[in-house]
Write a protein that binds this DNA or RNA. Sequence first.
RNA 1: CGGAAUGUAGCUCAGGUUGGUAGAGCGCACGGUUCGGGACCGUGAGGUCGCAGGUUCGAGUCCUGUCAUUCCGACCA
Length: 567
Amino acid sequence: MRQSRLFLTTLREVPADAEVISHQLMLRAGLMRQLTSGVYELLPLGWRVLYKIEQIVREEMDRAGAQEVLLPTIQPLELWERSGRSEDYGPLMFRLTDRHERAMVLGPTHEEVITSLVQQEIHSYRQLPVILYQIQTKFRDEPRPRAGLLRGREFRMKDAYSFDLDEAGLDRSYRAMFEAYCRIFDRIGVRYRAVDADPGAIGGEGGTHEFMVLSDAGEDTIAGCTSCDYAANIEKAAGQALPRADATATPAPQTVPTPGTRTIEDLVRVLNVDAGQIIKVVVYVADGQPVAACLRGDHEVNEVKLKNHLGVRTLELATPEQVLQWTGKPVGFVGPQCGLRVVFDRDIWSVTDGVVASDTPDAHDIHVVPGRDFPVGETADIRNVREGDACPKCGGSLRFYRGIEVGHVFKLGTKYSKVFGAVYQDENGQERTIIMGCYGLGTTRVIQAVIEQCHDADGIIWPMAIAPYHVHIVPVNTADPAQQQTAEALYEQLRSRGVEVLLDDRDERPGVKFKDADLIGLPLRITVGRKAGDGVVELKERATGQVSELTLEQAVAQIVERVNPSR
RNA sequence: CGGAAUGUAGCUCAGGUUGGUAGAGCGCACGGUUCGGGACCGUGAGGUCGCAGGUUCGAGUCCUGUCAUUCCGACCA
């Protein structure tokens, strides 16, 4: 491609609306432009990158035995009412009405559609297993779009769905997809980590892993072990239970006045105790019913864990009014003996000399011991791990990282197939429910995740596999016939060898061209300069800055080798 | 949903407190000099000052409303 003809404008200055570096570079390097909040246009360079990513995804999906389909964007709301997820997704769905006043939605995902399709088409065990996938635009009216493609309202995603006879089949499909994902991210050239995760809104039964690109721009917190390979999303991460401490020396409880202490911090200050000694009670509404969580003051409730433990659909914090109504106490003065169903965090046992809200108004009891001074009933791990907690696998120390979720694989089980009646007859004529898995991969998000990881002060540094072009040819002075001819000759030779070349044939000053080349970040650059007349050019590697002077033949040979080492 | 900031030329921003007919740098067009890391000189094009209403002789500037964009937060008792 001749750059003089390319639909590309780079930006010298950082766009005011972009905060995150990868977002800035997407705009500055002319990969995309914003249309409206969370919605972007991909320009030729950006589209080429996305295309390559999706091509790699296709190849690996096909290799793993999955078959590509294309499913509708527009879906009847009724489908979502059947699965019950109309409510779960709620305002996250873009809704529209057709001319017959029928309620429709723009698909935020496709479990409903694919399951109803499979329900119609699959009836016999002979037709299973099957894995279907598609690459499609998805729509989610996010409460807060952010950071360009990292969280958009319209974005591209590959989603695959597996349909199996039984659990063993699901395990095979899951493993095949997991391995395909590893190959995909390896081929793309991004550093990633597969972490244990919670199934979240999509729901389901059984294992699930998220593929995370480690980056401070990420929205997820990952707890990783510093001595083994354990890694999990904070929503899922479980540490080892803290040791149950010896409290035999703790004196008898004593009530002290603590008016106006609404928070743990207040108590720490007023009573001069550690936050870890305080035993707090947090009141929730779980499917409409009050439930209290009781844990140490320095621990945080993990709402995902609590929700899973309770087996409820919705879980939200109670309002102060609800707390008062149900417990007769204001927020901050509710103790474990509040009369509500209380779930204790298992690490409550690590408290030896605790503080709890007293029965006396505006007071707390000190020198309290769990089990001795109040009964500890229903107990579970319902808190977030903290840095330094013991790794569940090896006992090592957990550390936190930020990550961008680029892929998610999970075992759905029969959640959707049951609702949609996706069943088959086995060899005995018995009707059985199909077992499903689902496997998402955010292709547009990957573009930015890669940039987040692959850039320097001058611009993007594309991995070869997804670079918009392989090589950037920069003639320093287009007015010099020798340089001009050399650049053209290289351009033709490389293209005839299957190399994707961007030729900067613009009549610009060298500085401008070099700056643009660094910003755009093609992996290799050929500078055609003064020595062109002697048949010598420079080959520069974007990632390392390494420069070598080569003859044209050497340059072509090296580039062909670098672009496609296997050839 | 709550909080904050911002909306003036293609981009980055001044101007606003003190109301008086619109600015800079970069980019763009043309001419010239330059040509290995975002050149220089000259000329020029380009703006319903987000939108609506109000105050005023007069509003980019003051008031009210509204829309948009970005950031932070979304409740830990």
